[in-house]
Design a protein around this nucleic acid. Structure first.
Lengths: 195, 195
DNA sequence: GATTAACACGAACGATCGTGCTAAAAAAGC
DNA sequence: GCTTTTTTAGCACGATCGTTCGTGTTAATC
């Protein structure tokens, strides 16, 4: 049985997530990762077989981590409270001191948005999934004339802008801005759509 | 007089912007850039003296380009119409077929959000500038109880989410979503802030 | 026409990139 | 305790990275 291999694989991916957070998935190099563990380059490489496999594994590992942190939100019924919980979780994830460059998935989204390959496909799957979940929560309480996908788009917008304001601009008010934006969005979702 | 040098420098930066759009500012390599022009690696390098100087110059060039495209908006008074024009301009810029990876500045924002150095400082200056301009347009018509910085944050959110939906997800409805989000934001700006 | 400055080039540097191959060490199964 | 499988290390490869240097070519100045 593969026992030892799995635990070192997890150790590798934890560190890979950290490095990818700062330097991006492409900037994540096998040599630097091996040196940080520490481990031999070839020994590490044998776990994945290719760089893009390592990139995909790192992405999935990051997605799994944030999924676990958001798990308590599943107890809440889909609706405003769950959305507030998700936003808090994402904001804490973006500001996680263990991730010196913010969310590695967000980074990869910009890095690989136009590069075909397995990494992009993994990203698409992950992002479509979270988009769908946000839309569900909006649909649970929004006015029937409102489009859940529209609201989910704006929810995503808030998290992206928070990443931008918090990490690049280092703006202290970023948290307030994001919370207020969500409250306004929740309020609007309950009203009928104008036009 | 530096005559020939300036024109080749512009040619270099045009191509650098294209490559940085797809591969990021760090993925922009001197060798690949020289091969694409075509030009010798050393001849190109002499124009900038270092890679980070090339990165900064590429960023400034991109900012100048988008500034020129947004210039007609200066004729409009600060307010909703100008905001609509800016959003249209940014969306066209993000979808520009000459930029195979979307806006290179947005890419750099995620790539360099936690890497100290001249590139990050350039980004900070550029982003603070556009943030300030958006806040001005909101302040021109918003209800006094509204915070222009809050509204500018949400305006940025829309453009970031559009980049995400259009380039990564390749979602056709992205344009509609962004326009609707802006209209909702403009409408809210005119109303007093609740509580 | 001679001098000088600006510009581009080719070659080479040490370093690091991703990726194989082979053998030693460690763990697992009996 | 031995065998078999899994995991790691060592070493080397071709390619590419940013950068430096010396040289030639072109254009402007006197």
């Amino acid at each position: 049985m593969a026992e030892k291999g799995d635990s070192t694989r997890a150790r590798i991916l934890d560190e890979a997530m950290r490095i990818a957070s700062r330097d991006g998935l492409e900037g994540l190099s096998i040599g630097a990762l091996a040196a940080a563990l520490p481990m031999s380059k070839s020994g590490l490489f044998a776990h994945f077989g290719s760089k893009s496999a390592l990139q995909v594994a790192t992405l999935e590992h990051a997605a799994q981590t944030v999924r676990e942190r958001a798990a308590p939100g599943a107890r809440l019924a889909p609706g405003p409270e769950r959305l507030r919980f998700i936003l808090r979780t994402i904001m804490a994830w973006i500001d996680d001191p263990g991730l010196p460059g913010g969310c590695p998935i967000t980074g990869a989204c910009v890095e690989f948005d136009d590069r075909e390959g397995p990494v992009r496909e993994t990203l698409l799957r992950l992002q479509r999934d979270t988009q769908r979940r946000a839309a569900e929560s909006f649909a649970a309480f929004a006015h029937p004339s409102q489009d859940p996908d529209q609201l989910a788009f704006e929810f995503r917008a808030i998290t992206l802008a928070y990443h931008h304001a918090s990490r690049l601009l280092r703006e202290e008010r970023a948290g307030d801005w994001a919370r207020r934006a969500l409250e306004a969005l929740i309020a609007r979702a309950g009203r009928p759509m104008p036009d």
